[in-house]
Every structure is written in C-alpha cells, then in structure tokens.
C-alpha cells in the first residue's frame, strides 16, 4: 500500500502558506523586522487575503526593504524616504478595491516622513501602516532616530539628549481610528493586532518595537529583545473574530465588548474592568502620556473607533476603480466640448 502524502493545507482561496511568501530577506540575522514579515505572511494566509488586491508599499530604510520579503504575488512599491503615505494615497484612490499594507520605520515615519504620516492619518487613507520601530538608523550605521528614548546610549551617536516622538501619540492627536503598539518578540499579539488592523475602515497605525540586532540590542537599550521581554506591559486584551467565524467562546457577561469593524468582523475586548478601554479616546491619551512620562513599554490595542469615513468613502468614487474606467466614462463627448465652446 502506497504511503499517502499528507494533504497540502490551503486556505479558502486555495492558496498555501508558501504562496504568501516573499524573496529571501537580506536583513541581519535575528532582525525584528523579519519576524514581523513572518507574521504578515501568516495573517494574510489566515485571513484568506487575495494577493492580487493587496499592495505592499514602503519608503526607505531597513524596514522598507521588507515588502520584498513577503507575498510575492502582490504588487509592491518601495518608494521614497518618508513619502510612502502620499504614494499609497494615490494608489488606493486609483483603485478602491486594493488593500494597502504599508511598512515604514521610525526614521521613515517619524523624522523625514512625519508630515506625510500626519496627513495620511488626517485623511484617513484606508491602509495598515506599520512602523517597525527600533530607535536607530540601521542602513546608515547607527544614528539615533526621533523615537529613541531619552538618555539612550549608542556606540555611534553617544547619549541621546532629546525626548522621543511617540508614534501612537502622534496618530491619536491626528484622529487616527486604530492605534496599536506591539513588540516583534510577541508574535501572538502582533498577529491579533494585524488582523484587526486589516479590517479597519481607515488608517490603522501599528507601532511595533522591532529590535535592531546590530546597532541597538545591547543590555541598556530600551528597544532590545531583552528589554521588551522584561518590560512589556499589555494594557488591553482582545480577540479578532472574522466575519464568517462563529463566536464560540463565551465570556462572563459584562466582561467583554464587541467593536464591529467595517468589513463585518469583530474586535472582542476582554476583561474591561481590569484594563484600559481602547474605545475611550481620553483614556488612550492618558495611557500614552503616563507611559511617556514613566518611560513604560505598554503594548496592545490603544485606541479603536470605526466611525470616521475613510478617504475613499469621501471621494464619491464609482464602483469601478478609477484605474479601470473605460474611455467612454472618462472622455466627455464631442458635443460636450462644443457646448463649453458656446459658453466662452
């Protein structure tokens, strides 16, 4: 009797996990960014994301190289330093059926790209925007970034005498409706946040502390694996329930609350009495302020609000993507021009 090969596992689109893979990474061994890429691959597979309707966009830096390392069957655009948000804005307006996944870094998003970051959030461009945050410029060999903590020491740059810019804080001030912080060393939480973020109506910001093993993983670094593992404080517990999924686990009444996402999925918040309620903007602001003052490493879903319409909803776009409109829809008639000439 022939040995039966175990069936290859496929998702609802008939794709294997391998179909969501990218090219081999060229980042340093152990880089937090590679771990995040793996989470993206798993989540895309689990959520049955159609790669032909996903775009991977990035700016410049180590983090921005990673879109080449996941989901080969999706179009990717590794653009300009700090200017990915504008490029993504144009792409999702050109084709409203696209799901945009942006990967940025702390230099790309918080230094050169802070302006575009804020305006992307202000416009509520529908996309997931991941900041792979390591507090250091890797490709240029170890300068401080704007998210480096006060009094940090780096071999290249010495002591950091300036306070950090907080990614989540900036997003909240700009009225972002989905803000999460996580740690590359906490794969379970990264995946949960990613799944929920991909279902969000507008811009979802994920600030993921992602240690730089080469320049900023030493013992007294606040962006190291060891520091993250020792100091991570999870402020909110939640689960993601996909639209088609049956809700099977029951919690005691009064201990959970569901936020219905734009695509019909749910974010189920748990243990509301004990922890931070991410539906409360004031509470989110307070939590971030306190963490900033005490230099605490808080993670989890910080803020969620599905009410603000996304840019693609405001723009009165037709059902057919702008990019695919036929000429008869985009070139007015000869008579229309004659009429304009009459009126001049």
């Amino acid at each position: 009797m022939a040995v039966q090969e175990p069936p290859i596992k496929v998702n609802r689109l008939g794709l294997t996990r391998d179909d969501y893979k990218g090219r081999a990474s060229t980042l340093c061994k152990g880089c937090g960014h590679d771990s995040i890429s793996q989470r993206i691959i798993s989540v895309a597979y689990d959520l049955n994301l159609d790669p032909t309707h996903l775009i991977k966009v990035s700016g410049i830096g180590c983090s921005s190289k990673t879109p080449a390392y996941f989901i080969n069957q999706s179009h990717g655009f590794n653009g300009l330093h700090g200017r990915m948000p504008s490029m993504a804005t144009g792409a999702v307006l050109a084709n409203r059926t696209l799901t945009a996944l942006g990967v940025s870094g702390d230099g790309d998003a918080m230094s050169i790209g802070l302006g575009q970051f804020i305006h992307m959030v202000r416009r509520n461009v529908p996309m997931v925007f991941i900041v792979e945050n390591n507090g250091v410029y890797g490709l240029t060999k170890g300068q401080f970034s704007a998210t480096a903590d006060l009094d940090q020491e780096l071999k290249y740059a010495g002591r950091n005498e300036l306070p950090p810019i907080d990614v989540c804080h900036e997003a909240l001030v700009a009225d972002c409706g989905f803000i999460g912080r996580s740690f590359a060393g906490d794969p379970r939480q990264v995946e949960a946040l990613l799944k929920a973020a991909l279902s969000h109506r507008g811009t979802a910001i994920l600030d993921i502390i992602s240690p730089c093993v080469t320049f900023n993983d030493h013992d007294d670094s606040t962006k190291s694996y060891a520091y993250g593992k020792a100091h991570e404080q999870i402020i909110s517990d939640f689960g993601f329930v996909a639209p088609q999924e049956e809700i099977t686990v029951d919690y005691d009444p009064g201990t959970t609350a569901d936020v219905t996402m734009h695509d019909g999925s749910h974010v189920r918040l748990r243990k509301l009495d004990e922890k931070h309620d991410p539906r409360n903007r004031d509470a989110a602001m307070r939590v971030l302020e306190e963490a900033h003052i005490k230099q605490e490493f808080i993670t989890g879903l910080i803020y969620i609000n599905e009410e603000r319409p996304a840019l693609t909803e405001i723009e009165r776009l037709p059902a057919t993507p702008l990019a695919f409109l036929p000429p008869e829809k985009t070139r007015p008639s000869r008579e229309a021009l004659a009429k304009v000439m009459q009126e001049l």
């Binding site: 200017r83 804005t89 144009g90 792409a91 050109a94 084709n95 575009q116 723009e315 037709p318 990019a323």
Partner: peptide, 27 residues
C-alpha cells in the same frame, strides 16, 4: 459618483507622490 478624484495635498512633494502612486496603480 465622480469618474475622478482631486486631492489638495499638503505640499508639492505629496502632490507628486500621490500622482505617482495613482499612475502606478493605473490612473
């Protein structure tokens, strides 16, 4: 519905960034 979108950008860098993204995506 409109068969177009017009966005007032925050500066000229964003303006050309947006059209580059849109042109890449087929607009």
């Amino acid at each position: 519905t409109h068969t177009y979108a017009i966005v007032q950008a925050e500066d000229e860098i964003a303006a050309i960034g947006m059209i580059t993204g849109a042109g890449w995506a087929g607009a």
